[in-house]
Amino acid sequence: MNIIVCVKQVPDAKDVRLDPKTNTMAREGVESIMNPFDRHAVEEAVRLKEQHGGTVTVISMGPPQAEAVLRDAVACGADEAVLVSDRAFAGADTWATTYTLGKAINKTGSYDLILCGKQAIDGDTAQVGPGLAKRLNIPYVSYVRKITGFENNVLTLHRLMDDGYDEIELPLPGLLTVVKEINVPRVPSLKGKMKAKSLSIKTLNAADIDANPDSIGLPGSTTQVVKVFAPEFKGERAMLEGTVDEQVEQLVNKLQPYL
């Protein structure tokens, strides 16, 4: 089974803050990491390869620094890595991103399965997986939490829903987006790290993938971010006073309508 895994380098979201006074992002100490959901996608791909043979190719669209997450994926068992990078890709929304990734994947060769994390923790859109499947005209299943079988080129799986799960058959080639419950990602191995260090990463730019300049980056985007701001909260902040007993008494009186 030849598998392509899409990975993204993201800032560690829990550290990103917007200063409400200056409306600027505080980036000090914000680390760049592999999108956590993508780690699960890489792990699942490596497990499928270990069971059924084949190769795992990781692909990322991003600046040259995104090479780091590709090497992380190789250290965890991926075989090949492709970086799709060009300044012309900057400012891409999910629409332009799926166009670019689709073009790049078509250049990369044949595949049976594409795996993506369910969403990236920076944008939280969850749109790239389904959009990419549409671009490639392959069937897809989102929110996969378990792969239960593989026979006659059909994967059987469980899709997580809001009220339970669906049991699904996906004929290959196809695309999956995975949730965290699907596996526990491994830690890189020493041999994997050494391989990752020396592996030459194939880089594709806009010309390499025959991209239409009007469909990539900011010009190719259908949406635009027009404003970024810190969330506001409305609390009245009435701090109760007195002894604990007095405070509890006051609170119960105030909450009377609900009790």
């Binding site: 929304d93 999910t94 629409w95 799926t98 944008g123 939280d124 859109t125 969850a126 749109q127 790239v128 997986g129 389904p130 959009g131 499947a133 549409k134 671009r135 989102s142 929110y143 899709r159 997580l160 829903m161 809001d162 985007s221 259908t222 949406t223």
Partner: peptide, 23 residues
Amino acid sequence: ATAIGRSFIPLVATALATGLTAD
């Protein structure tokens, strides 16, 4: 922005070649 909506609306937006904002 449910499991269903977030799964198939991106497909529709891509087919219609228009923008989609999630959640």
